[in-house]
Design a protein around this nucleic acid. Structure first.
Lengths: 193, 193
DNA sequence: ACCGGATTAGCACTTGGTACTAACATCAGT
DNA sequence: ACTGATGTTAGTACCAAGTGCTAATCCGGT
């Protein structure tokens, strides 16, 4: 019954992949097989015991807490010239769309554009003060959204800059936003690097 | 030496908060105290044993994988009356702020408000078409943001609704947004419940 | 009928605990 | 100085979920 063994081991590995919190006893019951057989299977598959699996997950999830906040910018910045212009790209996945209709939730498009607007400002503190948005076309999972930002003359207001962002999928504009940004330092201090 | 005990227990709790992977033995060594004392301390503090802590972390990190994409709505909706008004609350954590200055990134405030605007519309398909935002005050980690949405007369435009959202921390308004929403069905079909 | 891989059983041992009991230690109050 | 409360340590029995090892048994193919 060579096939049975192989099949069982494959299913066992898959099972533990999805739900690592099962004891050998649980697994034995699930496959109607003895605990020892489950142990042998784990040996052969190189799967560690429950406690080791838990420890792994726990320490990995500790790292995750530190790893998560590295989304300072939503989307990958491809090109940037401070206080002038910037380009970023953002790939829309299933995670970003309404399950209802498959259309990307607005806040993701906003997040990409807003992040870019913040990034393009050459100042250690840049905050969004106001903005006007237009969602022109629905965006779907699989779409690659390219956002282009350009910094416009602030119109004389101190500590302010205007950033205009246009996001496109292919050639089609899907989103536009005007961001009025607050900054601590006046524009033009190129000496800061 | 009542103080010593209290102090030790505080440090012990803090220690496990930061690094839950320590055995009673590790802790005993760290505090130069017997294992039994550590156990008593854990009892008094209601801290479960190592394995339970690992199991908790592991299952939590499993949930996280499933829980993250289920952010159909950012923030918890406290109250909602379709096509009229809705309230949601969103707790800002370290994960939502710029590490630079501790100020919440704009897209989180937008996401809460926009989610609420979508939720309050009584239609199977509601999309944001345009919006105007104002970020009035910086929001910090630990702040609890309460967003209130009200649906305004659409001004005669077909398939449109206007939603006004005001977000506050305490009594202070921190964010306001006007959302022009697109909907498939005209307003007024109350029969749907 | 016999061989070999697969399976099962049994036992001793390990970790990191719980639950409980008992012995000290230390200090305060009278 | 004696008593009591509080805190600390020690020791025992027990548990879950394993490892590691040996031995027995099953079952199919030739």
């Amino acid at each position: 019954m060579r096939l049975q063994k192989r099949e069982r081991q494959e299913k066992l590995a898959a099972l533990l992949e999805g739900n690592p919190l099962m004891t050998d006893g649980d697994l034995a019951e699930h496959f109607s097989v003895s605990v020892q057989t489950v142990r042998l299977d784990r040996m052969e598959l190189g799967i560690p015991e429950l406690r080791e699996r838990l420890k792994d997950m726990a320490s990995r999830s500790l790292d995750d807490v530190k790893a998560l906040p590295i989304d300072e910018v939503i989307g990958d910045i491809l090109d940037i010239e401070l206080d002038k212009r910037a380009v970023s790209v953002f790939d829309v996945t299933e995670d970003h769309v309404f399950q209802r209709n498959g259309i990307a939730r607005g806040h993701h498009l906003f997040a990409q554009a807003n992040s870019l607007a913040v990034a393009v400002i050459d100042d250690e503190l840049a905050l969004t003060a106001k903005s006007e948005l237009e969602f022109r076309k629905p965006v779907h999972a699989g779409d690659r959204v390219v956002a282009k930002a350009e910094v416009l003359p602030a119109g004389g207001k101190p500590h302010r800059s205007i950033v205009r962002v246009v996001s496109t999928v292919g050639e089609e504009p899907v989103f536009t936003g005007i961001f009025e940004m607050y900054r601590t330092h006046e524009r033009g201090k190129e000496g800061q690097q």
